[in-house]
Amino acid sequence: CHSECLGNCSQPDDPTKCVACRNFYLDGRCVETCPPPYYHFQDWRCVNFSFCQDLHHKCKNSRRQGCHQYVIHNNKCIPECPSGYTMNSSNLLCTPCLGPCPKVCHLLEGEKTIDSVTSAQELRGCTVINGSLIINIRGGNNLAAELEANLGLIEEISGYLKIRRSYALVSLSFFRKLRLIRGETLEIGNYSFYALDNQNLRQLWDWSKHNLTITQGKLFFHYNPKLCLSEIHKMEEVSGTKGRQERNDIALKTNGDQASCENELLKFSYIRTSFDKILLRWEPYWPPDFRDLLGFMLFYKEAPYQNVTEFDGQDACGSNSWTVVDIDPPLRSNDPKSQNHPGWLMRGLKPWTQYAIFVKTLVTFSDERRTYGAKSDIIYVQTDATNPSVPLDPISVSNSSSQIILKWKPPSDPNGNITHYLVFWERQAEDSELFELDYCLKGLKLPSRTWSPPFESEDSQKHNQSEYEDSAGECCSCPKTDSQILKELEESSFRKTFEDYLHNVVFVPRKT
C-alpha cells in the first residue's frame, strides 16, 4: 500500500485506493498535508475557505447554543480562536489581540433580562453583547459592586439597553466600559436606550469621564423622579442622539420631579488639616426662599486615587461607600458681607490618608415646582503625618564578641513616609551569675543571650482551647457569634421535631 494509506488498500502504491488515510483526505486521495488554498479540518480532512465560511455563517444565523462559528488559524479551520487571539470578521482569520481579548457573548432569543446578581454573573467577562440587555433589578445585597464585577467589562451592545423598574439602582456607572450601543435591534418605538419607572436612579454616568455613542435609535425617559433633566440632556449631547427624540420621548413632568437638581456650584473657602482632623468651610448658599434650606450634607471617604465619582458603590438597598454628615444651616444675616460661612470639623480620621470630599445642599421643593440647590466639586484632601507606631517583631542576635545583629519589621501604621529608623542602645553591667558559677561542674549549661522565638506554653494553649472559665478566673470563653447562636437554635429545633416524629412513629394507638 501507499505510504499515506492506513489499515489496508485495494490497489498497491495508489493513494486513492486506501481504506483510511494516515494524515489527511483531499478529493478522494490521501495526502501528507493540505496544500494551499485548503485548510486542515478536524485533523483528517482538507477543506477550502468557502466550506469553513459556510459553517461560520450557519452557526451565526441559527443562534443555536453550542454550535461553533468556525475560524481560520495556522492553516486550520477550527471552532474558535485560541487564547490571546480574536477573529477578523472580513476573512475569519485569528489575529493577536492588542491588550485583553474581546469576548463576544451571543444571547438566546436576542435579549437577556438581568433581574438578579445570579443572572448578571452569566455575563461575567463579556466585552461584546450580541443582542439586547434588559435591566430589571428590584433589590439585593452589595448590588453596585456585584454588577460592576460582572457587567463592568461590557464595551458594546449590538441591540438596545433597557432599564425598567430597577428600584435598587442609583447610577449606571457599573457599566464602566460601555462605549457603544449599535441599535441594530430596537425596542418598540425605535428606541435604543429605554429608561422607565426607576424610582431611585439619580445618575446615568459621570459624563466628564465617560463617552457613549448610540449609532441608531432614540432615547426614552419616563417616570424617573430623581433623575434630573440636565442629566438626560447631557446624554443626548454626548451620545449623538440630540435631535432624534420626539416631543413625548422625554417626559418633562415625570423626570426629576422629586430630585434636588443642583444648578449652582458650592466653593470651599477654608481648608485646614491635622493628622486626624480636617476643618472645612464653604461659601454660604440661600435659595430664593431661605426657609427652603434644610441644611447641608457632607460626604467623605478614603480615596487612594483621584478618580472618585459621587455615586460609586451606591445602591438604593443601603450600600453606600460614603460617610454622610448632616449639618444645620448657619444663622442668616441681613448683611451679605457678614454672612457666616458654614463648615464642619471632621474628626477621627487616619493620618497621612487622602480623602475625597464634597458637600451639597438639602432643600425642600418650592411652590413653583422649581428645584434649587448647590453642590461642590469633589475635592481631595490629605491629612498630615504623625509619629508612626512601633516597629514590629524586633530580633537581636550576637554573632561574635563585638557585634549584635538587630532586625525588625516595619510598623503596622507608618502614618507617613518613613525615611529612617533611630536605634538606641545602652551598655549593661555583666551578670554576677557568670562569676559565681563553678565551671568545672559536669552538665553545666552556660547562660545564653542568643534570641529564641517566643512560644506559647501548654497552660496558655489549654486556656485558649477551654470553653469555660478556669477556677483562677484568668480566662473566659469568647462570646458566641450570631451565626453560632442561630445554628444552635436550628439544631435544637431539629432535635425537638425529630423526637416528636419518633414518638408518633414508635407509639401507635392500640386498636379498641
Rank of each mutant, 00 (worst) to 15 (best):
K103H: 03
V104M: 06
H106S: 08
L107H: 10
L107Q: 05
E109Q: 14
G110W: 04
T113S: 13
D115E: 00
S116R: 01
S116H: 08
V117L: 12
S119Y: 09
Q121F: 10
Q121R: 13
E122W: 11
R124S: 11
C126I: 02
C126P: 00
T127H: 03
N130E: 08
G131S: 02
G131Y: 02
L133Q: 00
I135P: 00
I135T: 02
N136M: 03
I137T: 13
G139P: 01
N141P: 11
N142D: 10
L143G: 15
A144L: 11
L147Y: 01
N150C: 05
L151H: 01
G152T: 01
L153I: 13
I154P: 00
E156D: 09
E156A: 05
S158V: 08
G159R: 02
L161F: 05
K162A: 02
K162E: 05
K162Q: 15
K162H: 13
I163C: 07
R164T: 07
R165E: 09
S166I: 07
S166T: 11
Y167I: 13
V170T: 10
V170I: 12
S171V: 02
L172I: 15
S173W: 07
F175E: 00
R179E: 09
L180R: 09
I181R: 00
G183I: 00
E187N: 12
E187R: 10
I188E: 08
I188C: 04
I188F: 10
N190K: 15
S192L: 00
S192M: 02
Y194E: 14
A195Q: 02
L196S: 08
N200T: 02
L201F: 11
L201R: 00
Q203H: 03
L204K: 01
W205K: 03
W207H: 06
W207G: 03
S208I: 04
N211K: 14
N211D: 11
L212Y: 02
L212F: 13
F221M: 14
Y223S: 10
Y223A: 04
L227N: 00
L229A: 11
E231M: 08
E231Q: 04
H233T: 14
K234S: 10
E236C: 13
E237K: 13
E237N: 14
E237G: 06
V238F: 09
V238K: 15
S239P: 01
T241P: 08
T241A: 13
K242V: 11
Q245E: 14
E246T: 10
N248Q: 03
N248M: 12
I250A: 07
A251S: 08
L252W: 12
T254P: 06
T254E: 05
Q258I: 02
C261H: 03
C261F: 03
E262W: 05
E262C: 07
N263I: 07
E264P: 08
F268V: 07
F268P: 01
Y270R: 05
S274P: 00
S274I: 02
D276A: 11
I278K: 01
L279K: 15
L279Q: 04
R281A: 07
E283F: 07
Y285N: 09
Y285F: 05
P288V: 14
P288M: 06
D289L: 03
F290I: 00
F290D: 15
F290P: 14
R291N: 12
D292Y: 07
L293I: 03
L294R: 03
G295S: 05
G295W: 14
M297Q: 11
L298Y: 01
L298V: 07
Y300R: 04
K301C: 02
K301E: 02
A303E: 02
Y305A: 15
Y305Q: 04
Q306F: 03
N307S: 10
N307C: 01
V308S: 10
T309L: 15
F311Q: 08
D312C: 05
D312Q: 03
G318R: 09
S321G: 05
V324M: 09
V324A: 10
V325K: 09
I327P: 01
P329L: 05
L331H: 09
L331I: 12
L331T: 14
R332Y: 05
N334P: 08
K337F: 13
Q339P: 08
N340R: 02
N340E: 15
H341F: 12
W344A: 12
M346G: 04
R347L: 07
R347Y: 11
L349N: 00
K350T: 06
P351I: 05
W352C: 15
T353L: 06
Q354C: 01
F358Q: 08
V359H: 01
K360L: 04
K360H: 01
T361L: 03
V363G: 15
D367S: 09
T371E: 09
Y372A: 01
I379T: 15
Y380P: 00
Q382M: 15
Q382L: 06
D384V: 14
T386Y: 12
S389A: 04
V390H: 15
V390P: 15
P391E: 02
L392N: 06
V397Q: 15
W408V: 01
W408H: 00
K409H: 03
P410A: 15
